[in-house]
Design a protein around this nucleic acid. Structure first.
Lengths: 69, 69
DNA sequence: TCCTTTTGTCAAGTTTACTTTACGTTAATT
DNA sequence: AATTAACGTAAAGTAAACTTGACAAAAGGA
């Protein structure tokens, strides 16, 4: 799974700290998500998409290994 | 957060067991999700939406308490 | 009524998202 | 060169998603 969090955040010109404050998560969480260290919960994915004004499917690109069959 | 998993599953006329097999999760997971015991991971939400031929946002209804501000 | 399928409960364990703290690195500015 | 803002790493802990297994309650048809 690929994510566009970093790109979208840069488009808004906000820092990791500002984003983490807005979403009420730690800055470490933002760092880890941008680096692909782990995957966000559904709720956090939704908040991120909402912040960036896009859909969850726009923000996260699900690849083959996560598809069915 | 509300979910339409049970309704969508019934539309497809498949059992919890068939769905859990398709998604490679335990039947207990499906039960718990339908009953709202906990929220799915992003990947599982994606697989569910894919199975039902809809978007994540169509399958899960995010309510006020999960919105920003 | 009996049998089977489907749905549900309970509990204990594993994995992973997320937090917190503390410290190191990079890049821009003065 | 020194300071500061932004980004990154590492480690240890907590909370929640998910598993497994065993067993009980509904619901359906024969």
């Amino acid at each position: 799974m690929k994510t566009l969090i970093k790109e979208k955040r840069n488009e808004l010109h906000i820092t990791q700290e500002e984003l983490s404050y807005k979403l009420k998560v730690s800055r470490q969480t933002i760092i880890s998500l941008e680096k692909g260290k782990y995957k966000p919960s559904l709720i956090l994915a939704h908040k991120l998409a909402q912040t960036f004004g896009c859909s969850i499917e726009d923000l996260f690109i699900f690849e083959g290994d996560e598809n069915l069959e």
